[in-house]
Structure formats: structure tokens, C-alpha cells
């Protein structure tokens, strides 16, 4: 179901009831959020069972790195949202540049995260070190895979924008791809305090 197309075909339709992107993407997002919910709650419950271990292990993580990771993802989300806005104003080429900026910002996240993973590995804080790090690697690793998939989608969308495939009345696929990227952001803003900040 394309709600963008629906609005274009029905100019009188109230934007107050507009759901961007394809309905299938929203169901996919709900499924993804359910999986992440299970992982987040598993982390929280285990933390309640072993509070001292989680407190001590969390001290081995750098919260400023966590903050930099957060800001790079959120900045990427901003560029992706701005790109979508440009397409709606029939500026597809400008949108392509904004999506490239989103990719660049996401690359900062990937670089920082790989650096963090390498640092923790060099300290012997791998998946088998203790319960905290087992859950840390599973939770952040699963999210990291989503970031990589999201970057592939952003790259594909940027190329499609460069070729002016999308326009104000034909951007539902773009909206769906950008929504996936925002879902990755949404999950991270809950993971970040849970893994790096809370004591």
C-alpha cells in the first residue's frame, strides 16, 4: 500500500491520517522492534540478577565513545530525513548528496564501533569474558548488522535519487528505506543508555 501515491491521487485526503512509506515496511519494523525488545529485556533482567558484575563491566566501556556513536547515527538520520524532504520538493539530485552525507556519517559510526570492538578484543573482553560482555556483543553486534544493511539501503537510494527515479508523487520506496534507517536510530537511543550509561 502506497500512502504517498494515495495522497497524490487523492489531493483532498487529510495529511493528518498519512502514514509514510509502505505498510509492509511498518510491519517489518514492528517485527524488528519485537526482536530487539526481547534482547533489551534479557539484558535488563540479567543486569537485575547480577548488578555488581554489570556495574563493573560497564566501567570498561567508554561512554564518550557511546556518545560519539549516538551523534553520528542521529546526524545520519537527519540527513536521510532531509533527503526525503528534498525529493518531495522535486530536488532528487540534492537528495542524493544528502543521502551520501548520511552514508558518510554512518561510516563514522562503523569506524568507531569497529575501533571499540578491536579495543575490547585486545583487552580480552570478548563474548566469553562474562555475562555482561556476552550480552553486549550479541546486542550491539545484532544492531551493527542492521546498521550495515541500512547503509546498503541508503547507498541504493542515493543512486536511485541520482538517476531521478523518485519524485514528489513517487517516493514511497524512498520513504520506506529511510524509515528503516530511523528504526535503527530508534533502537540505538534505547541501547545507548542501557549499555553505556545506566548504573
Amino acid at each position: 500500500m502506497s500512502t504517498s501515491l494515495e495522497l497524490a491521487l487523492r489531493p483532498g485526503a487529510s495529511p493528518a491520517r498519512h502514514l509514510p512509506g509502505d505498510l509492509a515496511m511498518w510491519f517489518f519494523i514492528l517485527a524488528e522492534l519485537t526482536v530487539f525488545a526481547l534482547l533489551i529485556l534479557a539484558f535488563a533482567v540479567t543486569q537485575a540478577l547480577q548488578p555488581q558484575l554489570f556495574h563493573d563491566s560497564r566501567q570498561l566501556l567508554d561512554s564518550s565513545t557511546g556518545l560519539a556513536l549516538t551523534l553520528s547515527l542521529l546526524t545520519s538520520g537527519l540527513f536521510a530525513a532531509l533527503a526525503q524532504e528534498q525529493v518531495r520538493q522535486a530536488r532528487a539530485r540534492r537528495a542524493a548528496w544528502l543521502l551520501l552525507a548520511a552514508l558518510l556519517s554512518a561510516s563514522v559510526y562503523v569506524g568507531l564501533k569497529l575501533g571499540e570492538y578491536a579495543h575490547l578484543s585486545s583487552l580480552g573482553l570478548g563474548m566469553e569474558h562474562n555475562t555482561f560482555f556476552t550480552l553486549y556483543w550479541i546486542l550491539t553486534g545484532f544492531h551493527f548488522l542492521h546498521v550495515l544493511l541500512g547503509m546498503l539501503i541508503l547507498g541504493w537510494l542515493a543512486e536511485r535519487c541520482r538517476r531521478r527515479v523518485y519524485g514528489p508523487t513517487n517516493c514511497s520506496a524512498l520513504e520506506s528505506g529511510v524509515l528503516y534507517w530511523h528504526m535503527v536510530d530508534l533502537v540505538w537511543v534505547l541501547l545507548f543508555p542501557l549499555v553505556y550509561v545506566l548504573n
Binding site: 561512554s63 556518545l67 551523534l71 543508555p193 550509561v197
Partner: peptide, 8 residues
Amino acid sequence: SVASVQLG
């Protein structure tokens, strides 16, 4: 984001 790190 900055505030949450400061609070933490």
C-alpha cells in the same frame, strides 16, 4: 544525548 551522559 549529551545530557544523558552527564546525568549517568
